[in-house]
């Protein structure tokens, strides 16, 4: 086929982080025989599938890793491959990374996301529930089912809608945290907050949203953003650091305003 590289088989050496559970200290293990004859047409996770099948058949425990949709959108997969979250390819999740990105004889070091806010639960799986809690703290618009106005009553300039969508494309995989030298979650928080802040529907809660989300992110133990830019470079959805700048600005504005007296979070159900 036009432009289609021919399938090749690779023999690889894998150095994989193995850790039984949260409490275990963990260690690297090396797999060589299990990583032979890997087709370049396989995805990275399919390569791990093959290795796991071989491990199981030889009576050993397979490598636990998170994954679900395998089409780059659910955000559940993610491992650090040779020092890069989701591997070397730009704008690509581990499930969509294909083995044609590697050479025969390559040695791959495969590690979990590392951050105190993302404790390892087993092997390459980490607990990212901190992200859910950040959203629960304010990453929403407080609208109850059923009381929405007619959709076209709220015109949204196309530019704003597009920019909001750029932010909303975040899949919550946590690669930004994994890549950040400070293990900061700022790109995630910025994407979520600015997706909503950019829309007229999200404007009324803008101030309380940014304050609450930053409070939560800080409380979870993520580091601080010092504008290294690693997050943006590894983000599989190429979310721009400009959203962090926007978030900073919104945070400053929110901090300068006098808080209103009314109840903060909006009515419970």
């Amino acid at each position: 086929m036009a432009g289609h590289g021919e399938e090749k088989l690779l023999n690889l050496t894998l150095n994989v982080w193995r850790q039984r559970n949260r409490g275990d200290a963990g260690r690297f293990e090396t797999y060589k025989d299990e990583a032979r004859d890997i087709s370049t047409d396989m995805s990275f996770l399919e390569m791990l599938d093959v290795v796991n099948e071989r491990l199981i058949k030889s009576g050993r425990e397979p490598i636990a890793f998170d994954h679900d949709c395998r089409e780059g959108i659910c955000g559940q997969c993610g491992v650090v491959v040779n020092g890069s979250p989701h591997g070397p390819r730009k704008a690509t999740t581990a499930c969509q990374l294909h083995m044609r990105s590697f050479q025969d004889g390559d040695s791959l070091t495969i590690e979990p996301w590392r951050a105190s806010a993302f404790p390892v639960v087993k092997d390459l799986m980490v607990d990212r529930s901190a992200f859910d809690r950040i959203v629960a703290a304010g990453g929403y618009i407080s609208v109850r089912t059923g009381n929405a106005p007619e959709a076209n009553n709220i015109p949204v300039p196309k530019y704003d809608a597009d920019l909001s969508m750029d932010a909303a494309a975040c899949i919550g995989c946590g690669a930004c945290v994994a890549a950040c030298p400070n293990a900061s979650a700022m790109l995630f928080v910025a994407a979520k907050a600015e997706h909503l802040n950019l829309l007229p529907q999200g404007a009324p809660e803008k101030d309380s949203r940014v304050l609450a989300m930053i409070d939560q992110a800080d409380g979870e133990g993520f580091g601080n953003c010092t504008n290294h830019g690693e997050c943006e470079a590894v983000c599989p959805k190429e979310i721009s650091m400009a959203f962090i700048a926007r978030l900073n600005r919104d945070y400053l504005k929110a901090s300068l305003k006098r808080p209103r007296a009314s109840a903060a979070a909006g009515g419970a159900g």
């Binding site: 929403y140 609208v143 959709a151 909001s164």
Partner: peptide, 9 residues
């Protein structure tokens, strides 16, 4: 209507 109000872009 519901989704627009929720901020679906």
């Amino acid at each position: 209507d519901q989704c627009v109000a929720q901020g679906v872009p």
